[in-house]
Design a protein around this nucleic acid. Structure first.
Lengths: 163, 163
DNA sequence: CGAATGCTTGCATAGTAATGCAACGAGCCC
DNA sequence: GGGCTCGTTGCATTACTATGCAAGCATTCG
């Protein structure tokens, strides 16, 4: 077609997910219907089904607050960069300072500000047993599937990092 | 009553929640019905409704894995110790080394092995805006409600810690 | 004691999230 | 171009989770 007309309420999947991440990051979103409404406010039309699938793609977690509303959160940054194995190993070698584990958690330390880079690479690695990652400034927390075990993951990551 | 008969399938709420935490911590629990079955295996009878309420009490989070089953996780240790404000302030003053924040996260650093103590105190503080905490060995990650903001929480915590 | 109060639970149901299926559109190959 | 394949989406439905209500128990109070 020679007619790339801009439809104001039609965005690509990726852009919509970025918007979702932004919305979730800037206010409490109690449920998926609320998210549908918020998207509509931004001019993006989507159904609950689509939002559900988006959230799955993004690895969203749902947090229940003891006395109040629940809320969604996005553990790791959705990046669409490609990272070949080599790059992953290099990222780890360069930026992973320390790997520690306890129970079903693994903590990775990086230089200040680098955590999200490493977390992003980790997310795209598809490592079995990694339920989710949360990146701070210089610390990454990894929630590990219990049938895999934090130690196992920690060992693999240490190896990747050359520690 | 002078008849303290031991009912094998009747436990107190607290004990059941501890068992739930243990189960969730030792295997992947996809949903609440699965948890009901697991509890039954352990000789504890409870309905989905009760499990739902327990999970809320425990501040459980539900993690969705991109290509696989979802799983529950318990962010912080359920402790029933009491901690008066004074104690909270003392805990922070003694064990909080650093407070950092980024977006909707706050990271607290403690001496090695002390994270869970501080996290526990923090959980019992009932601080507004704290969605959940996750304690590693010497690092605590706090998920903050976005309408409160990581900076706000970080400031309060720094103050508590005397930093 | 018996009544009143508070806490916990199950049942039934309302509320929310996940998914099978079909439809649509883009890119590709023949 | 016509037909394929792949990816994405909405609809309708199922699956899962949360909760109002009332019952059951234990404790406290009168």
């Amino acid at each position: 077609m020679t007619d790339p007309v801009k439809e104001p309420s039609k965005l690509g999947k990726t852009q919509r997910q970025h918007l979702i991440a932004k919305l979730i990051g800037s206010q409490v979103v109690a449920n998926q219907l609320a998210l549908v409404d918020l998207l509509a406010t931004e001019g993006v039309i989507a159904t609950q089904a689509t939002v559900s699938r988006d959230l799955e793609d993004m690895g969203a977690i749902k947090v229940r607050m003891p006395g109040s509303e629940s809320a969604y959160a996005i553990p790791a940054l959705p990046k669409e960069q490609r990272a070949p194995e080599d790059h992953l190993r290099r990222v780890f070698g360069d930026w992973v300072v320390e790997v520690a584990h306890s129970d079903n958690l693994v903590i990775i330390r990086t230089p200040p500000g680098s955590a999200h880079v490493v977390a992003s690479a980790l997310d795209r690695s598809g490592l079995i047993g990694v339920l989710g990652t949360v990146a701070g400034d210089d610390t990454i927390l990894i929630v590990v599937a219990s049938d895999v075990g934090g130690e196992s993951i920690a060992t693999q990551l240490s190896d990747l990092a050359g520690l």
